[in-house]
Design a protein around this nucleic acid. Sequence first.
DNA 1: GTGGTTGTGTCAACACCGTTGACCGTTGCT
DNA 2: AGCAACGGTCAACGGTGTTGACACAACCAC
Lengths: 204, 204
Amino acid sequence: MAYGCRVTQTSPGAQRPRALRPAGLATRTAIEDAARSLFAERGFDGASVRAIAAEAGVDPALVIRHFGSKEALFLRTVDTSLGIGTVLDGPLETLGRRLVAYFLDPRRPVIRQRYVALAQAAHHDQVREEMIRHTAETYVGPLAPRLTGPHPELRVALAVAQLGGLLNLLFLQRDPIVTAADPEVVIATYGDAIQRLLTPPDTP
Amino acid sequence: MAYGCRVTQTSPGAQRPRALRPAGLATRTAIEDAARSLFAERGFDGASVRAIAAEAGVDPALVIRHFGSKEALFLRTVDTSLGIGTVLDGPLETLGRRLVAYFLDPRRPVIRQRYVALAQAAHHDQVREEMIRHTAETYVGPLAPRLTGPHPELRVALAVAQLGGLLNLLFLQRDPIVTAADPEVVIATYGDAIQRLLTPPDTP
DNA sequence: GTGGTTGTGTCAACACCGTTGACCGTTGCT
DNA sequence: AGCAACGGTCAACGGTGTTGACACAACCAC
């Protein structure tokens, strides 16, 4: 009954070791680097734990030992925010187009990789919950108070849905029409449709 | 070099046997029924070939024998259209709201199941191509000619993207905000945003 | 009727997957 | 010195989709 820190009495989730030694930390980051690389390169399903372990030069079992599960490793490794960050800080009136422009920017090819990996992992519960949390924290929290008119939270959530729809068609489905279209036209057209959710025309 | 009908010379895809006998047809439909049921119930990943075979009362190998692969069985079994059909026939001016209303209708719980299964299978190439084909055939083809203004095909594709975004947030991510919201509000708000893509206000 | 072809079905196996338990050496604290 | 915990390896488990070898049944030509 009296044991160490590996497993506590009630929560099997808190299994990450505290006070790790230098060697442990080194291999941990090696595994994280390998995971980041392979998840981006091959997606969630395509990157096997064994391949990640091989890339990091360790035993597959050690990956699970350190991170608990492949899903947990993914969550600790892949940035679910896709690097949005400061885009949301600008003026609300042009946010629609700026959001679309950010994700369509060819100088950020990492976004596509991360989104594909994220979408593949989306039907695992922990990842799903993290995405919900991220939406609430990154989008709804900061944005809803700045909106006028009814149902601000819902309208932000719907704007996020609309944004996700574009990423889905563009990066996952690779729809030929949208892919071949002039990015500026997509930014203007789709951005304005998102804008309508954030600042409806009858709410000046 | 000279063999029967199982595999033709050039196309390895046409491997389904012709002129099947009654017994074969019966088990084929049994497998299809089991697959339809389990794919809807557990999704693409959750429904294993072995489970489908067990439900149909046959050997797992027979499933692959008959359909070539799990992916092919899925494509032959699940309706990728989600039953849209006649919704697109009505007046263009109210199509945005009608589309959203169709997918939010609680009398059609099958839609959610099929969408989840479809989304899980979406990163397999054949399924992806089928979805692109379906978008082109069901939405872009009939709708784009009815649109006025510039880039009609692109605007239809973007409307489809937007619609998919809602389904994604609602059925896959199960976002609490949208889930808890009044469906009528969602239909009005999101439907009007879609409508803006189809009939922009500056194109009367 | 006989033989060959072909569809139908079964069985065992392959290669791979995420994960776990048993085990061992090393580290660091007391 | 002793001991607990960490860092790591190994083999294995139960699961996956898929394949090849093989057996039986139905049809067709002779």
